[in-house]
């Protein structure tokens, strides 16, 4: 039974998640593309840099948030940077990108620190919503997404740190190569869930990490997570 469940999470659910993500984003963008434009100018003054550089600057560095709440901005910046580095780190589990080895390292570069940073910042975002006035404006989606993300990061970090720092025999210790075999199997539509991976000491933690990550990816296009894409368009209207 467990084998069946773990396989479902590690293979079919991953396909479902990424298919939903890609089709969901295409659907979202198509819906916007098909929606009518309006002749009105919606920008505010003074007009800052209206070039794409200015739009990207506002979209990636949120100067407005920095002015209003430096603490929140700090957590947001650390959180988003850590996410970017973790995405890069996961890419290294797919293949060995030489360009990423400018600083020679074992996967992951942060050696678990990024996970810890993400855990702390996710908890900050969550606890922030427990108090007024943010409690009053929050809806279940805000909490649920953070909880899903929290579990995904927590299990991912536990798994990574256990594999990295745990004292296991080389026979059972999982390497980047084992993951590359798994990821390449998924990418080439010849999924392989090797015995080595399935028999790893913390395999259940890995399955939980993948489960919560899949859930988050499925929800991505249909939740407020779409802000990561739409911010560029919304900011361009503000600066227009």
């Amino acid at each position: 039974m467990w084998d069946y469940i773990s396989y479902l999470v590690m293979v079919p659910m991953v396909y479902v998640a990424f298919t939903t993500l890609i089709l969901g984003i295409i659907f979202k963008v198509y819906t916007v593309y098909k929606s009518p434009s309006i002749p009105a100018r919606l920008g505010v003054y003074p007009q800052d840099d209206i070039t794409p550089v200015g739009i990207i600057k506002d979209s990636l560095f949120w100067p407005v948030a920095l002015k209003k709440s430096p603490l929140l901005w700090g957590f947001l910046m650390v959180f988003h940077l850590a996410i970017v580095f973790l995405i890069i780190g996961h890419m290294e589990l797919i293949s060995d990108f030489r360009v990423l080895q400018i600083i020679p390292h074992d996967v992951f570069l942060g050696a678990g620190a990024l996970g810890m940073i993400l855990i702390v910042s996710t908890l900050y975002f969550l606890f922030r919503r427990f108090r007024s006035p943010f409690r009053e404006i929050s809806i279940p989606e805000d909490y649920l997404l953070l909880i899903i993300l929290f579990f995904s990061i927590l299990f991912g970090t536990i798994f990574h740190m256990s594999a990295r720092y745990g004292s296991y025999s080389e026979l059972v210790k999982i390497s980047a190569g084992d993951f590359r075999e798994y990821f390449m199997g998924l990418i080439t539509f010849k999924p392989v869930l090797s015995y080595k991976l399935a028999l790893a000491p913390h395999f259940i933690v890995l399955v939980l990490h993948v489960f919560f990550s899949n859930l988050f990816i499925i929800l991505f296009p249909f939740s407020k997570m779409i802000h990561s894409l739409f911010i560029f368009f919304a900011i361009s209207l503000k600066r227009k």
């Binding site: 407005v64 948030a65 929140l72 943010f134 404006i137 779409i226 368009f233 919304a234 209207l237």
Partner: peptide, 11 residues
């Protein structure tokens, strides 16, 4: 955009 992009950050 406006209906979808808000994260209710509360700023």
């Amino acid at each position: 955009y406006y209906l979808d992009v808000c994260t209710r950050c509360g700023l």
